[in-house]
Design a protein around this nucleic acid. Structure first.
Lengths: 241, 241
DNA sequence: TAGATTGTTAATCGATTAACAATC
DNA sequence: TAGATTGTTAATCGATTAACAATC
C-alpha cells in the first residue's frame, strides 16, 4: 500500500487548473520585471529572451517558457518591447495597484521593516502594525499606528488587508497566523522560525534567516576542508579473515 | 549547435564530487535540526523518519534520502536517536563551532540585524560592521564596532571572517561583494535586490524582500479574481471565413 | 520471533533545456 | 528577402516518491 500523503501541504492541488504555474516561474517574473525597469532607465526599448537570460545566468528558453504561461508578449525576429512587457508583468503579478500590508511584531526586525524604504517604494504600503508589548501599543512608528494584537480581526477586516508580515518569535506565530487567516489574510511573509499550518488557498513565504546562515555555514565548511563523511559502511569483506 | 551556456552561474560544476548534495537537501537538514531540538526539549529520545516528515508535510523517504547523503544514522525498526542525529546534523552543517559574521550596511535593515537575537543565538556572531556614512563610522552598535567600508580587506583578513551579510542598496552591492570575496569571504547573505556575480566557490544566498512580496501579491490577486489571461491565440480556424 | 523502520534502488514526476517550425 | 527570434514541442535532467530487502 502506498504510504499515505503525510500532512497537508504543498503537492499538487486536486482540481487545480490544467497548467499550474510553477512557483519558481513567479519568482523569476518579478526578477525579469526588475531587469526591465533597469533597461527602461537605460533607454532601451526592446530586448530578446537571450539578453534577458544572460543577466541572470538563465536559459533563454526558460524566459520564453515562463512568459508563455501567461500569453504571447514577444515579436518574432525582434524580441520584446520593454515597456509593453513591463506593463504585462506588472499586470500579471498584480502590481497595477498598491497593496496594503499589515505587520505583526514591532521588535527589532519589525521596526526595521517599518523603516525599510524597499517596501514602501514599490506598491507595498505597510499601513498598520500590531504588537504585544503594552508600552508600544497605541503609539506610532513613523506614520504607522500600532495596535494590540487582539485587534487584528476588526482592523484588517475594515481595511480589507490581504497581506501580512509576521515578525514575532516562533512561539506565538501559529496563533497569530490563525487570527490573520480568520481576518481574511491570504498571504503571509513569515520571519518566525516555525512551520505555519494554514488552510489551502493561503500562501506562506518563509524567510528563516537562521536557516539561510546555516546553509552558508555548510558551504563554507566544505570549502575549507571537505567535511568528514562517515566512512561508507565497510562492505562485507570478500577477503577472508 | 546547442546554445552556449548563458553566463557563469549555477549548473553542474565540472569535476564536482560524484554525488552532489542538492541545495534543498541542505536547507532541509537545518529544518530537521530545528525539529530535533524541539523533540529534545520535549524529552523524546527517538524519532522515525515518518514522524519527522509529518511535521513539515514532507515524505519520509525524502528524510531518509537527505540523511543518506551523509551516512547511516538510523536504527532499523526503531528510527533515529534524537541526540545522536542532532549531533551529526550539527557536525555536517558545520555548527560545532561559532562563526564570525561581518555585516556591511548599518542602515535600517542592518541595524535590525545587529540587534536581532536570532543570529547571535545559535553560533552566528555578528562581530564587525562596515558602513559608508561618516557619522556612523568609528562608533559601535551594541558591542559591534563600525568601520568604514574601505577597511573590509584588512579587518576581515585579520579576523579570518568567511561569512558576510550585505544590507546595502543595490547600486553599490557588486563592488562591495568583490571586496568581500577578495578579503576571503566565501558565503554572502545578500539583501541587496541585485544579482551578484561571484567566483565559483563563493556561495550567495539572496533574500529579496520585494520579490517575496511580489510573489505573495501574485497569489493574492489570483485568489481574489483569477486574473485575465490573454485569450489563447485564436486557432487558425478550420471553418472557412 | 513478529513488527517496525531503515537504507537504497527503481519508478515517477516536474522543471529545465534543446531544437525547430512559424513568422516578424 | 535573409536574418533573427519567438512560441512550443520533445528530450533531458534532477528531484521526489514508492517499494522492498535488510535488519534492528
Amino acid at each position: 500500500m502506498p504510504e499515505r500523503r503525510e500532512a497537508g501541504s504543498p503537492g499538487p492541488v486536486a482540481g487545480a487548473r490544467a497548467s499550474r504555474v510553477p512557483e519558481r516561474t513567479v519568482t523569476r517574473l518579478s526578477i525579469y520585471l526588475r531587469c526591465l525597469e533597469e533597461l527602461q532607465t537605460d533607454g532601451l526599448t526592446a530586448v530578446s529572451s537571450k539578453q534577458l537570460a544572460q543577466r541572470f545566468g538563465l536559459n533563454s528558453a526558460q524566459v520564453r517558457k515562463d512568459l508563455a504561461y501567461f500569453g504571447q508578449f514577444g515579436v518574432r525576429g525582434l524580441g520584446y518591447y520593454v515597456g509593453e512587457l513591463k506593463h504585462n508583468l506588472e499586470r500579471i503579478l498584480g502590481l497595477k495597484h498598491d497593496w496594503q500590508v499589515a505587520l505583526v511584531g514591532v521588535g527589532n526586525l519589525g521596526s526595521a521593516l517599518l523603516a525599510y524604504p524597499g517596501f514602501q517604494h514599490r506598491g507595498f504600503r505597510l499601513s498598520v502594525a500590531f504588537e504585544k508589548d503594552p508600552a508600544k501599543i497605541g503609539g506610532r512608528q513613523g506614520r504607522v499606528p500600532i495596535h494590540r494584537i487582539e485587534r487584528i480581526g476588526p482592523v484588517l477586516k475594515r481595511r480589507a488587508i490581504r497581506i501580512a508580515i509576521l515578525a514575532i518569535p516562533a512561539a506565538g506565530a501559529q496563533a497569530v497566523a490563525d487570527q490573520l487567516v480568520a481576518a481574511g489574510v491570504n498571504a503571509i511573509l513569515n520571519f518566525a522560525p516555525t512551520q505555519l499550518t494554514v488552510p489551502r488557498g493561503v500562501k506562506v513565504q518563509n524567510v528563516d534567516l537562521s536557516v539561510l546562515l546555516k546553509t552558508l555555514a555548510f558551504h563554507t565548511k566544505r570549502t575549507d576542508r571537505p567535511h568528514a563523511v562517515p566512512a561508507p559502511k565497510p562492505a562485507v569483506s570478500s577477503v577472508p579473515g
